[in-house]
Design a protein around this nucleic acid. Sequence first.
DNA 1: AGTCGAATTGAAATCGTTACCAACCGGAGT
DNA 2: ACTCCGGTTGGTAACGATTTCAATTCGACT
Lengths: 338, 338
Amino acid sequence: MPPTIKEVAERAQVSVSTVSRVLNDYPFVSDTARARVVEAMEELDYRPDGAARTMRTGTSLAVGFVVDDFANPLFSAIAKGADLSLYERGYSLVLANSQHDVRREADALSALRQRRVDGLMIALVDERESWVVDALATFPASVLLDRECPGASAEAVLPDHARGIAAALDHLLELGHRRIALIAGSQGQRGSRVRVEAFRAHLRLRDIPLDDRLLRVGELSSETGYLAMRELLALDDPPTAVISGSNQIFVGVVLALREHALRVPADISLVTCDDVDVTRLHEPPIDVVSRDAMEMGRAAAKLLLARLDDPYGPPQQAIVPTTFVRRGSSAAPAERRP
Amino acid sequence: MPPTIKEVAERAQVSVSTVSRVLNDYPFVSDTARARVVEAMEELDYRPDGAARTMRTGTSLAVGFVVDDFANPLFSAIAKGADLSLYERGYSLVLANSQHDVRREADALSALRQRRVDGLMIALVDERESWVVDALATFPASVLLDRECPGASAEAVLPDHARGIAAALDHLLELGHRRIALIAGSQGQRGSRVRVEAFRAHLRLRDIPLDDRLLRVGELSSETGYLAMRELLALDDPPTAVISGSNQIFVGVVLALREHALRVPADISLVTCDDVDVTRLHEPPIDVVSRDAMEMGRAAAKLLLARLDDPYGPPQQAIVPTTFVRRGSSAAPAERRP
DNA sequence: AGTCGAATTGAAATCGTTACCAACCGGAGT
DNA sequence: ACTCCGGTTGGTAACGATTTCAATTCGACT
């Protein structure tokens, strides 16, 4: 029903080749022909058919966006940032929800390949799944979102979690805390992994012995946060400060603290990773290790477009800074207060 | 580079027609031929090319998802719900961000049409923009998300805001509140519009006079919430209870209340619309007029698929219930307490 | 044995676009 | 006058699938 290039050609009294040349800004089109074509296109409100273009050229102007859970504000902010950058170049994001399931993730990749997306932005369910990692290579371009796969030929956007964790730890240490806990998510995902490593490394650097019971690793969920926090509070010698390793974990931690009627920061200091609305609205506002999620999206888009422009050369990485933002959820530990 | 139907045909020693028939589950394919084709497809790991299919059949198995801002947790939850349902049928969501801008929204529609999406899920920037509304008709199917456009031939998913607002009002009235404020967003969007109407209608029903100064209409943003709340507090006779008309507005309201050092619910009662993490984590937890956003997404997907299955018949609507959830942010007004 | 019809198959057109190739045109150079 | 060449144009073969149509086979029935 919509007009085709053929109808434009007829109306402009030229061949379809000429219309195509105008469409794609080729040189060697006379001004009069170009004018006639442009006029005909406007009169017919002609838009070239995407499917036909894709079929012919192999490019779709589409980018797959694959994440665990699109409802996570962190991911939707990344998507928004990416979309803003991609939009300018005519690309669209195609969503795929991996639901924390490697199998489903593989399915999604297969579907996206069928759609001939030009690129992929993906937060792998598990960096160690070599099968999925290898599949990335079958796409013209792919960007890992806070994931690291040594073998993979993929760009990566990597928040500098280590620096943020170090800053948070220094802050807590300075307040006098010595028993600091960290609740982190799956070790198959860089974010959680790096936070744990940085936590260990920085305590060692500062010569603070680490009680292994204070380091809890689980899933990236509020349940993990809730259960881990309860276990921490049940210790003979519970921590005086807690770092929550993600926004989902944070929810569980707060619920557990509330259940035990503990006040923040009077009874326990609390720091969380990733800044979302909740942290600012909380009373008191929560100290966070913050990263700019929309900036991550923009960085990912930039890497992707650069790779599409130049298919060769080694994969690039973009490091996104993290900063520690002091608000009102940390204070000196109780035993040290007057 | 990936195998085509032709290669499958060669390997299976049949014609491409037969492969196509197997692919599309046509009857009249002999068992031996079918078996050979299936085997060849597996050996080659063949997947039919989406673009070619789209070109030939006119359907793309893609659905456009157009919203103001998909970083809004409400919209990302809708997207997630829709994606879960659509995934089963092989459809994908293509994102488009309208950025509160009608022009950009129109651009997005045009781009989605070029992509030949089979359907549209859209929260129009402004229901009154007839130009955009008419454009909906050029898609095989479209579902409005909490929008109502009398003329448009589009399905709609409509949360029953009126009932939720009425329940919230009754609750507050029962506690003894008489000066209740509502801060709502743009009247070009059904959500805000219906809430305002319901607010007016229900107060009238209960014979409570409405002070027009207590009804603030602005944009769907935290700034609106912040400014409106400040203005309300500056009145000679400020409200004893406030209903925030959206999650964005809620953020601004809380900040304004905090600035004035007002305690909830001791100094003022607070109810907000749309349940997001923030409301449960707030201290006290906030009473909400809640709707199930993922359910909205699922309902939208269902309407869309039904319409695609049967292109005729009048547009359908799905009403999604809203419920008032009492938590801890409302109490009797100060002057009535002992 | 010849005819019929149902089951099965393949050849070829088609979807809308791009890209290759050949053809044409007009003016400059010899 | 003839060649050459750059600029401009149109015809047509892909791209990878689906769909129509006609052809073929084969058992059953007259």
